[in-house]
Design a protein around this nucleic acid. Structure first.
Lengths: 200, 200
DNA sequence: AGAGATATGGCACTAAGTGACAGGCGGTGC
DNA sequence: GCACCGCCTGTCACTTAGTGCCATATCTCT
């Protein structure tokens, strides 16, 4: 079910990238995904929303890995390690490129921006759990949610910057650069001390 | 023009509040605003987007006041003073209540959430300018944008919490409480030292 | 007065999105 | 084996969000 939505999202992202959001119809998405229009509208509330699962997938896998973040490891070390693991996963890399393309077209496509922000908002939820786990506090606490929100804001900014530089600017990034910039931004943004090893 | 959009937005927000987003049609908004449907769709790309100007108005007036933030004053002092000024402005208060209502219905109305996030994203731009001015750095710098993003994330969270408590929970807030909580959250979230008086 | 830029309305039209009903298909009980 | 169930999907008619195109009003500049 969630996997099916993601599959549709991959096709939608591809079409959005090739023809723009306005240039791709709901019918085209349905056809590319091999589904009836009706089913597509059952999966998504709107055309832009078709982009969400793909956008979310990248952030979510990221967050999912953070859930497994050992308390004894620093953010930098863990991030670099997980990103090394990621590049072995072909699907992940493909999704990452597709997502970056979408993010890179945000300035031109206001409709995509709302999908992007919605995806970030969902990923924020996941972050709340990570912060809660790492600080041993409740996900309801304001400070916990605040820390998750600022961390997510940092990740979003870095993502936007890197995606634009890579796609529009043709720049290249090494894994160390990528994980380093993400970690640095998150470290600065976090309002709770979660980035360094925590003792139990 | 911008004023006209805001006027439509006020009517739309009212209808959204009364009948829900799905329960209000574009025609209804147009009629309430005394405009043709055609003009409404010229003003807004989508139905949800009709909510943006109102949502934005509150944050933007807030940010506009921050632009005038004297370098010698702390965040807390200035916020309290400006909010005292705000309550004298009837229109502002009405808009604030209407905006709070919309924010309070976010959990039930996914469509509104995207409008809300878009408004926050726009307000973030304004924040970038404030942070740049107060630190004497360029609005292009990553650190400046990061600080604006985290501050905006804090403001968003507080807004969501307070709106929900006030509208859904029937709670009451004094000006000191309001400005205090906003200031506290922003102070914690900021990644650059803009909250205290800056010497020139 | 007349040319041009800008804002609006009217109306036909396209495309996004929904409701209602009818299968298809994998369990589960017997 | 079959009847039953819940769940997902497709079809098709339908509503409503949203656009293209042209006519008209208003305003400004000369």
């Amino acid at each position: 079910m969630e996997e099916a939505r993601l599959a549709v999202s991959r096709h939608a992202a591809d079409l959005f990238w090739k023809h723009g959001v306005d240039g791709t119809s709901g019918d085209a998405i349905a056809e590319a995904a091999g589904l009836s229009k009706r089913t597509v509208w059952r999966y998504f509330r709107s055309k832009e929303a078709c982009a969400e699962p793909l956008l979310l997938a990248t952030e979510l896998r990221f967050a999912a890995y953070l859930e497994a973040w050992p308390r004894s490891q620093s953010l930098e070390a863990y991030l670099l390690a997980t990103m090394r693991a990621f590049v072995g996963d072909e699907q992940y890399v493909r999704d990452g490129v597709a997502a970056a393309r979408l993010v890179a077209m945000l300035p031109k496509e206001p409709a995509l921006r709302s999908a992007w922000l919605m995806a970030c908002a969902q990923a924020e939820e996941q972050f709340v759990r990570v912060v809660a786990a790492r600080t041993g506090r409740s996900p309801e606490e304001f400070d916990v949610r605040l820390c998750a929100a600022t961390a997510m804001a940092a990740l979003r900014l870095v993502d936007e910057e890197i995606s634009s530089a890579a796609i529009n600017g043709g720049r290249h990034f090494t894994l160390d650069e990528l994980s380093g910039r993400i970690a640095a931004a998150i470290r600065v943004a976090c309002t709770l001390p979660i980035c360094d090893p925590v003792e139990d």
